[in-house]
Nucleic acid binder design. Structure first.
Lengths: 220, 220
DNA sequence: AGCAGAGCCGGACTGGCGGTCCGCTTGGGT
DNA sequence: ACCCAAGCGGACCGCCAGTCCGGCTCTGCT
C-alpha cells in the first residue's frame, strides 16, 4: 500500500508559485493517464462551475462529467476546496505573469501609480471573467484569498510602498484587494446590475485616492 | 392545516427595516412561548457560532442547545441562511440606529467627510466584534451583504454624494464596504495578525483618498 | 519484447447535515 | 371550562463530501 495516502497528500498545485509547465519532472515521473485524467477533471469542473454555479456542481457531478471515479478526483485535489483553489489558481498565475513580465502599464516599466491603476482594472476584468470560480472559492476555502491572492497582495504592497512609503502597505493592500473582490462578488450576485466599465472606473478613483494628492504623478 | 407552510414562509425579520421592538402587534398576537423559543434559539445560536465557528454549529446542534426541536428552529428562520442573516441583522440595525440618530461624528451633525471616516472605523469595530456572524453570513447567504448591508450602503452613498457629487456613489460605496468587509474577513481568518487599530487607520486613509484632495474639508 | 510491481483507478459505502412532515400539545380568547 | 388554531418536536428523507480497497493499467528495466 502506498504511503501517499497520509493525512497530507501532495495536492499538486496548491501554491501560486508552481507553474504548470509541461515537462517539469518530479522525483518520480507522473503517469500519463494520471495527467490526462487531471486535465479532464479540470475541464469538466470549469464547465460545470460556469454552467450550474458554485453549489450546483457536486463532486459526484464533476467526476461523472469528467468520466472518472470519485477516488480519482479526490486523489488529485484533496477536497472540494482544493479543486476550486486549483482552478482559480491557474488563472491567477497567468495574471501574475502578465503583471511580472508583461508590457506596461501593467507590467514593469511604468510608474508605480499607473501600474496600480492598470492592476485594478485588469484584476477586475480577470476576476469577472472567472466569477464563477471566485464565488466558488469564496465559499469553499477556509483561507479564501489567503493562498490564492497571497502573491498578488505582495505585489500590490510593493507598488504601494513605491507610491507612498508612509502607507501601511500590508493592510492597505488587503483593503484594496478586498474592495475589488467584493465588487466582483456583488456583481456576480446581482446579475451584473452595473457594467464592468463602471466598476473599473470606480476602482481607478479608489486607487487614485490612495496615491498622494499631487497630480503630476498620476496623469500619463 | 395552516397555510403558513407555503413555499415562502413569513420569515420574521429578513429586512433591515424591521425593528424588534416589543409590543409591536401583527394581525394576530404571537404566542408567548413562540417568542421565548425564538429568543432561546437566538441566544444559543450566538453562543455556538462564537464558540465553534461558522460550520462547527449545525442546525441540529443549535436546536439542541436551545432546547427546542428542529421544526421550531426552521419554522422561525426558514433555513440556515435565514438564521445567520437574522443574527447579523440585529447588530446591523443597532449600528444603523447609531448612525442615523446617534451623536456626531458618526451621527448627523458632523461634515460628511468626517462622518464617513467615523463610519468606517465604527463599522470595522462592530464587524470585528461579531466576526463569527460575518464569517457565517459570508458563507451561508446567497445574497450575502445584499440584504444585510443594503441599508448601510444607502447611507454611504448619500454621504459620498455630499462629499463629491461627481463620484459614482453607487459603485464606490460598494467598493468601500467591500474593502471593510474583506479586511474583517481576512482578520477573522488569520487570527488577528494585524490589530484592529491598524485596520481602522488604513481604512481612514482609504476614505480620505476618495474625498477630493483639497484638505480643508478633511481636518477637524 | 516481456516482465514485475508501483501506483493509479473506480465506485460502493459511510456519516452527517440541511430541510420536511405530521401527529401531538398548549396557549389564549370566549 | 372549553375549543381549536398555532406552535412544537423529532423521526425521517435525500444529498453530498470524503474514504476505502480490490483490481488493473502503465512504466521502467532487463
Amino acid at each position: 500500500m502506498p504511503d501517499s495516502r497520509t493525512p497530507t497528500p501532495p495536492r499538486p498545485l496548491p501554491l501560486v508559485g508552481a507553474l504548470p509547465i509541461a515537462g517539469e519532472r518530479r522525483d518520480r515521473r507522473e503517469r500519463a493517464d494520471s495527467i490526462a485524467n487531471r486535465d479532464r477533471i479540470v475541464a469538466a469542473a470549469r464547465a460545470l462551475f460556469a454552467e450550474r454555479g458554485a453549489e450546483g456542481a457536486s463532486m459526484d457531478a464533476v467526476a461523472a462529467a469528467a468520466g472518472v471515479g470519485k477516488g480519482t478526483l479526490f486523489r488529485h485535489f484533496g477536497d472540494r476546496a482544493g479543486l476550486t483553489v486549483a482552478l482559480l489558481d491557474d488563472e491567477m498565475t497567468a495574471f501574475q505573469n502578465a503583471f511580472l513580465f508583461g508590457p506596461p502599464p501593467l507590467g514593469p516599466g511604468a510608474p508605480a501609480a499607473q501600474r496600480l491603476e492598470a492592476f485594478a482594472a485588469e484584476f477586475l476584468r480577470v476576476l469577472d471573467t472567472y466569477r464563477y470560480l471566485v464565488v466558488a472559492a469564496s465559499r469553499a476555502a477556509d483561507d479564501s484569498g489567503g493562498l490564492v491572492f497571497g502573491a498578488l497582495a505582495l505585489h500590490v504592497r510593493m507598488l504601494l510602498e513605491q507610491v507612498d512609503p508612509t502607507l501601511d502597505h500590508h493592510v492597505v493592500a488587503d483593503l484594496l484587494l478586498g474592495a475589488l473582490l467584493g465588487g466582483v462578488l456583488k456583481r456576480a450576485r446581482d446579475d451584473r446590475a452595473v457594467s464592468l466599465e463602471r466598476l473599473q472606473a470606480a476602482s481607478k478613483a479608489l486607487v487614485r485616492g490612495v496615491v498622494p494628492c499631487p497630480p503630476e504623478r498620476l496623469s500619463s
